[in-house]
Design a binder for these strands. Structure first.
Lengths: 333, 333
DNA sequence: TTTGTTTGGTTTAACGGTTAAGTTGAGAGG
DNA sequence: CCTCTCAACTTAACCGTTAAACCAAACAAA
């Protein structure tokens, strides 16, 4: 910057003015400064600017597993919205590990990011003022216990209800569920929707049809095997996320059980490949891109309101999911 | 920091020494400083530190599409290696857009990242000294034209050769290829491997069996339809990436053509779902995690060698891929 | 002519750390 | 008792920006 100023024959303050497009610099000088900048291949140091300005124009995003299709899709929405407003993204992986999540959180704070988007894997952490004071947080996908605001999630209860209703309307009575980690809202809410639909239809929820997975492929295989090896196996299964569904389908292949002939399957989470399975999977499709976009918008509103001290609270935004009926579900015999 | 120093009754320099675990601070003071730090919930400002130190301990990573399974897998390797050495990751999406890629590159420079991992979508850009001077770059996945060093990629020629050989060894003669963007090394190298295997087996490469896709699902569908609607359709198809394969399989479903009965399919890129398709897909599996890990290690070596001025050059590291034979390929009749 | 205002710039003090150089005090050696 | 050494700590300069305060010249109004 110093060099640019010297080459253009002005002070560094003038260079700064040109960079930030402030008024009060004559066209002639503006031109010569710009000239000098490109001659020297000068790029402003955002580190220094951040230090001075007190904000970084970077927002952090913590997800439990980048490898799960779901999160990159959310990330697209976040990124597109962020770019429009000149923000950069710092993506971190918590590996479903609460300790690492806390560590990342404090690391992001040290990096002085302007805000954080968090899909928390910590079912015990209380994100109270302590953390809040550090920076604005918007929760995505998963709602931490007790959290009543600043979150963008899918209406999991409704979505699970719809999925289960679909099975019931096809005449199924023996409907099993492969639940995810019920310490997470995505785990418990989907179970709640299932329960609601079953009770409404006066169907019993048999203990043996209620399987606890943990959102991983392996647990899907395990639960699938257990369910189909019962003396009286279910005629339909509701699997609570994409990875477990994958495991479930593998177990069906292994046991040589035809789907949907012998058992109908409806899965949470749609993904590119779902329509390519044989059979094509009936899924609950979340608005992933939209979740990311809305979350980023909410975060931006919070950041700006803190800047202007016009604190307005942001409720939990619940986006509906859509049931995509394909070939893995069919009428009960 | 000021507050911490005051509370502990020392100077800020002493606080700094404690933070950086420098010798020359008495145990008593060390304790009281640490005490004060936790009392005030103090987290050092990495922005200020970066400004002073001239490095950020952040490395940038630019990928064409986070939504492609491949890149998150690479990212895992990068992240694990980065974490060990105290580096953070800034992930960016170029959307296969060269302009955006250039823009991100200059943005990352302004952020003063210590290095960059780049899967370039720019087939024309020359990454010469101009760019190099800004920061160390290691290329991943795709080798830009003319680049002979500082890259970690899969041995695409060999892998494509193996895949094609596999089809040939099954007795296929009419072997089609759905190529990707041949302006990218991943596109052209895979074609080269295919060519080599075909020529070696004295099989003609028919123009009509050579289809140009662009690595997208849509192009896969398109090429699949075109190929199977020929008067004399191929008995085997080599598809050059995961998304195009997905498209290809959709087109087969649409045309009601059985795989592998009517046509064998081998695909580049393995992914979690590949083993769940019906039929289970024969794929070329890249060492994604390892690519990320090795690339990060190489970048670290470059960064450190620049620091010590012990410039040593890094060649192109080529990792082998593995052919996973499953059910989508079978003997030609 | 004097005064006020506007325009187009410069100077300088932060921002929050790190570190080289300087200071202090205590113990050892002469 | 004086000097020397060394450990322990402080002072102050610096990193690259921005912005408030300041300044000079030009011009308009009284």
């Amino acid at each position: 910057m110093h060099d640019v100023a010297r080459l253009a024959g002005v002070s560094i303050a003038t260079v700064s003015s040109v960079i930030n497009e402030k008024s009060g610099v004559s066209p002639k000088r503006t031109a010569s400064v710009k000239d000098a900048m490109s001659k020297l291949d000068y790029h402003p140091d955002l580190v220094a600017r951040s230090l001075k300005l007190g904000h970084t124009k970077v927002i952090g995003m913590i997800v439990p597993d980048v490898t799960n299709q779901y999160y990159p899709e959310v990330m697209r929405g976040v990124e597109d919205e962020a770019r429009v407003h000149g923000y950069q993204l710092m993506l971190c992986n918590s590996n479903e590990n609460p300790d690492q999540e806390q560590h990342l959180l404090s690391m992001l704070f040290s990096q002085r990011v302007d805000g954080v988007l968090l899909a928390s894997s910590d079912s015990t952490a209380v994100y109270d003022r302590q953390i809040r004071r550090r920076f604005p947080i918007v929760f995505i996908d998963r709602l931490p216990p007790g959290c009543m605001e600043r979150a963008v999630i899918t209406n999991n209860v409704q979505a699970a209800y719809d999925a289960t209703r679909h099975l019931i309307s096809l005449g199924h009575k023996r409907i099993a569920i492969i639940a995810g980690n019920i310490l997470l809202s995505t785990g418990s809410d989907r179970v709640a929707g299932y329960r609601q639909a079953m009770q409404e239809a006066h169907l019993p929820i048999r203990e043996e049809y209620f399987r606890h997975g943990d959102f991983t492929l392996e647990s899907g295989i395990q639960c699938g095997l257990e369910l189909m090896n019962l003396k009286n196996p279910p005629t339909a299964i509701f699997s609570c996320n994409n990875k477990m569904t994958l495991g479930l389908m593998r177990s069906l292949t292994e046991l040589n059980i035809a789907c949907p002939k012998k058992v109908s399957v409806v899965s949470f989470d749609d993904f590119e490949w779902a329509a390519n399975f044989t059979p094509q999977l009936t899924t609950v499709s979340q608005q992933t891109y939209q979740i990311g976009k809305c979350a980023m918008q909410m975060l931006l509103r919070i950041i700006n309101s803190e800047k202007n001290r016009t604190y307005q609270d942001e409720a939990v935004l619940m986006l509906p999911a859509k049931l995509l009926v394909r070939d893995s579900t069919t009428r009960a015999k």
